[in-house]
């Protein structure tokens, strides 16, 4: 069996939004400890990992199940959540559906068809990074918006103790520099200068679910995948994005 009650449907919607920007389908691996899911996008450029411990739920009861979901359909249903709705997720094993129930002034139920998506058994690779930056999501997203004006990819750099978001187009350039004492920076753990270039659209998708005051943990090296990690409503979201590399 699987039944989970989430006090704020809107918080869970953010998690589904973040995943559905990058993935078509996902397998939720539910167990008595909580829900986890790991998947790569079809092009293998990005990896999404989510961990929602049972403590993040108002009520939680589950055996071990793999629940395969079409994320586009799930996202459309979650878009129907109202501000004060509770969310109940419930596996109907007989009908092979996931019941998605919004409980507000009325009880509204959707039965979502399950997909035969087997769990990937993916692990987030344990990479050692020379640099780790904790930054307010709003500040980072703003820097990405600046970069978006000049090109569709962006360099994330660590230079001389500063964290720099830099883009260069045919004609124009943009640069945002964060120093360690900036109000937007929570901490910078800098080991060495680094530079990696990334597709901007992916970075925007990965950070879309974060509110501006949420804290992003960004790990970067030179020509390495970037790791971006943040928490939403007690759930942990981790993303890896492969870089663009000079050939």
């Amino acid at each position: 069996m699987f039944k989970a009650v989430i006090s704020e449907a809107k918080e869970f919607k953010k998690i589904i939004d973040a995943a559905s920007n990058l993935l078509d389908e996902i397998c939720f691996e539910v167990s008595e400890d909580g829900i986890k899911a790991r998947a790569m996008d079809p092009s293998h450029v990005a990896l999404v990992s989510m961990d929602i411990p049972k403590e993040a739920f108002e009520e939680y009861e589950a055996d071990v199940h793999d629940i395969g979901i079409d994320l586009e359909a799930f996202k459309k249903i979650m878009n129907r959540a109202k501000a004060k709705d509770k969310l109940i997720l419930e596996l109907d094993e007989e009908k092979n559906k996931l019941n998605v129930i919004f409980k507000g002034t009325a009880r509204r139920k959707f039965a979502l068809a399950l997909y035969d998506v087997s769990s990937s058994n993916l692990q987030v690779p344990d990479i050692e990074y020379p640099n780790e930056i904790l930054i307010k999501a709003g500040a980072f997203v703003d820097a990405l918006k600046d970069a978006d004006l000049v090109n569709d990819h962006v360099a994330l750099k660590v230079d001389d103790g500063k964290f720099i978001i830099y883009a260069k187009g045919d004609l124009n350039e943009s640069e945002t520099i964060f120093e360690e004492d900036s109000e937007d920076i929570i901490s910078m753990n800098i080991g060495e200068n680094a530079r990696s270039t990334f597709n901007l659209e992916y970075l925007k998708d990965m950070t879309k679910a974060a509110s501006s005051d949420d804290i992003l943990k960004i790990c970067i090296g030179t020509d390495m995948p970037v790791k971006i990690e943040y928490d939403i409503g007690g759930a942990n979201l981790t993303f890896l994005l492969a870089p663009r590399i000079e050939s």
Partner: peptide
């Protein structure tokens, strides 16, 4: 700005 590589280029993910 180079060529997009995949995560498979960095680690074996199953």
């Amino acid at each position: 700005f180079g060529k997009q590589v995949t995560l498979d280029d960095f680690f074996t993910i199953n």
